[in-house]
Nucleic acid binder design. Sequence first.
RNA 1: GGGACGGUAGCUCAGCUGGUAGAGCAAGGCCCUUUUAAGGCUUUGGUCCUGGGUUCGAGUCCCAGCCGUCCCA
Length: 494
Amino acid sequence: MTDNDENHLIAERRAKLQKLRERGVAFPNDFRRTALAGRLLEEHADASAEVLEGARLKVAVAGRMRAKRIMGKASFINLEDVSGTIQVFLQQATLGEVYEDFRTWDVGDIVAAEGSLFRTRTGELSVRAAGLRLLTKSLRPLPDKWHGVADTELRYRQRYVDLIVNEHSRKVFATRSKIVRQLREMLDARDFLEVETPMLQAIPGGAAARPFKTHHNALDLDMYLRIAPELYLKRLTVGGLERVYEINRNFRNEGVSTQHNPEFTMLELYQAYGDYHDIMQIVEDMFQGIADKLHGSRLIDYQGREYNLSRPFARLTIEQILCASIVDLDGARLRDVAYLRGVCDQMKVPFKSGDGAGKLQIELFERSGEATLIQPTFAYAYPAEVSPLSRSNDADPFLTDRFELFIGGREYANGFSELNDAEDQARRFRQQVERKDAGDEEAMYYDADYIRALEYGMPPAGGLGVGIDRLVMFFTNSASIRDVLLFPHLRPET
RNA sequence: GGGACGGUAGCUCAGCUGGUAGAGCAAGGCCCUUUUAAGGCUUUGGUCCUGGGUUCGAGUCCCAGCCGUCCCA
């Protein structure tokens, strides 16, 4: 990407830059603007041409030159800054030599203009330039002014170009920021403490996933990028931080798809003296709060389908969903391993020999149940076998007090009443280790320090994880996770 | 991992059953003092993703690979 993609367009611009260098400071940084384009358009939306002419409002604006229309001794340019785009009117009569220089400037250059506001014949608010400066010479031509960047690969690899050219893209990332801010404001208002826990972990815990492995040289210690912050956040509840949350990156060494990026952003929170019912309400509040803030409505369109985020969301148990989504399923034999294996075979759902009834249920649920959960639905009562960190249900120890939120067949949140029984947790870890020894790479490690923490006593609590990227996809109507990640993972350029 | 589709000028895209590589925008030159996808005239610009193969001849057909998009597991 250095010299081999040079072309005559770039060569011409380099020659222009060389001339600028010869004449002095080519990249000046002494211009200060007094106004933003978008603000000016807002503030003077109602000002008539006569009022503006009388007021003689002096402004200094700067931005990227996005359009250039030369008509002999007068020209118009569009300057775009972070807030919007304003037109600037240039005349040879007032600018003199600068006007002749300007003729050689290119679309894409960073330009500053000083002058007074006025309205053109067609009524567009513009700056009549009394002064004009080139602040940064752009050496590479921008993509087609009309079509923008259509090549998805270029949009992802050169996000800076995508952001220059595609307003929609800028808007998506602004919305992402708003969503995260909304979540923080909501949690801060409820006395949650935002914390940061290790990303480099000696024992990767808190989720069933393959980790990225790395090495600490000074300690000569293999370490892992975290797959979840869960066990550290729960240690904090042991320490008396009764409401904590973290919004940060997790890393999972798995496939890449429209739904998955190897590093992704997760919100996790833990609330002492609460259970999974309380957490479900928090989730409803989050989705409603974001919908209200962004759209002023709880009816959200995502990829051509309308979703109603009004509370309460539906609540169905895993077993209920299985019975509703698989025809002729015998609801009385849902914990019968032999029977479930038969169903799996019938539906061509693969399973492992060590899988118990709980795991088989979830395999079937993922195949048949998830896709049926269109409007927001909490699927709850997950089998303990697949929920090694969740509290067992008091009445039915086959189950845990755990839920996941589904919208449009897609998982958005995972929450549960936390397992704070150290001896039960130790037993669950040992079961995980057995699975790992049997070849399950996603099974968890035994984390002795975490057990020790629980042995000091962790208050009863509820916890939650929400995938921020998917949340942003939903609220920005984005089809691919790459559309909501500034720099999505791609193979290196060759 | 399997399948479908795509990769041609800086960008957006055409290019038919194999026969000299095209347009618009951008860029260079000329004209133009209220345009806004400004306009008019004109010129330049190509590793047709890469490597093999078939053929008198390959952007086009075949094989392998690279990169990407989507779908499935």
